[in-house]
Design a protein around this nucleic acid. Structure first.
Lengths: 230, 230
DNA sequence: GTCTTTATTTCGATT
DNA sequence: AATCGAAGTAAAGAC
């Protein structure tokens, strides 16, 4: 990885056009060809001010560095950096890619869906899983279940249930009910947490909200089932 | 900005939980309190492997550095970095925040709206603009037009039209039609590109989809602004 | 490859 | 402060 601290001016053109007036910035050039531009403070905090992702071709001009042109291998994107002054320029050897361990994540929506697919009864008493990712022509329903009476239930799973999740589930139900066999299909929104507005809208539409406790679900003990009154 | 290259192991807990096994990484600590963790190669390219945005409290232990704990000022998030070996540790003065120039952008949705407002006929033959940002109590309609016969058309503009754009336009139309004068109002979705699902839903609801060529639109007005020759 | 959805989305604007 | 919508979204997964 090469880290350059420089006073520079930057122009990007591609998906849109941007311009950055001259200032001191960090230029980060990764081994995989990624180029990023960072300022120490200002608007962008966790995102670079400018960047280009691989595959890139990097042209370097001047000794010391005067100009850096980054081009996308395929496509009409270009990042042009005019360097007025180099304050630091260091190359760091950070080991072969093979030795880079992957990030282990736990607690994403996928984990939640997997756990609920294993224990559909957490979404409602007596629920049995019929299919995960039930296809419709406007996207897949997370879980399709039937209850003890054989009635259908479409389950939408979110980490955080927003008003948008309610809309999504509503669309699915609207679509599913076109099939006479699913005309009685109900909707359940299962999430770790709910925005107040989402809860209100869901209830107004006759959708049930089920708050999921990931820890309880993951534990061996019988998970608690907490329902909001409908 | 402080840049540390170190062999380290990292654990994050907060919105979810992650773990990174020991490897050489860049630790980037910005003046605004942002902390980011970067690997030279691997999965994440333009996004850090781990991060915490301000406001943060950073605890530093050991001389040389052995442990770095980053906590969110308000909230239950924590990033713990166990440092096995420091390969480089440099502090860079990058000037006061006031001198950091903002990013100038051109080519966003707003630009598209401006261009279409100048040329409403691109959204449909004979369209005349009545008003841009026509107010409703659920938000403004991008363009309100009338055709040669005097019929009303609500135009929703997107760079990329998704199913959500169809929902938005549907809501506007439902709202507008409460006014008897606008009871015949039609809907047009204008976008640079369309998701297939958005097309399906739009057609099912009787909305017309119009694909906009930004280059052509802009070329009509100011050909010299074209960056890449065809 | 294409297409779709998620994200510790981030980010800015508006209420 | 909370909400809403856009992003050069990026990146992972399904088909």
């Amino acid at each position: 990885m090469r880290l350059i601290v420089a006073r520079c001016e930057i122009a990007y053109s591609g998906r849109l056009a941007t311009h950055l007036a001259e200032a001191i910035r960090l230029l980060m050039i990764k081994a995989d060809g990624t180029v990023m531009v960072w300022s120490d403070s200002g608007g962008q905090r966790v995102r670079p001010q400018n960047w280009m992702s691989p595959p890139t071709v990097i042209e370097e001009h001047g000794q010391p560095l005067e100009r850096l042109v980054v081009r996308k291998l395929r496509g009409e994107e270009q990042l042009e950096i005019r360097v007025a002054e180099v304050l630091s320029d260091a190359l760091h050897e950070m080991g072969p890619p093979i030795e880079v361990p992957a990030l282990q994540k736990d607690g994403e929506e996928r984990d939640l869906q997997e756990l609920l697919a294993e224990r559909p009864q957490c979404c409602g008493e007596g629920f049995r899983l019929v299919r995960r990712e039930w296809p419709t022509d406007i996207g897949p329903v997370d879980l399709m279940c039937r209850d003890e009476a054989g009635a259908w239930i479409a389950v939408e799973i979110k980490r955080l249930a927003t008003i948008e999740a309610v809309e999504q589930l509503t669309r699915y139900l609207e679509r599913l009910k076109h099939d006479p066999a699913l005309a009685d299909c109900r909707g359940v929104l299962a999430a770790q947490s709910f925005k107040p507005q989402a809860r209100v809208l869901a209830e107004a539409r006759g959708l049930r909200c089920v708050e999921i406790d990931l820890q309880a679900l993951r534990g061996d003990r019988a998970p608690e089932l907490q329902l909001f009154a409908a």
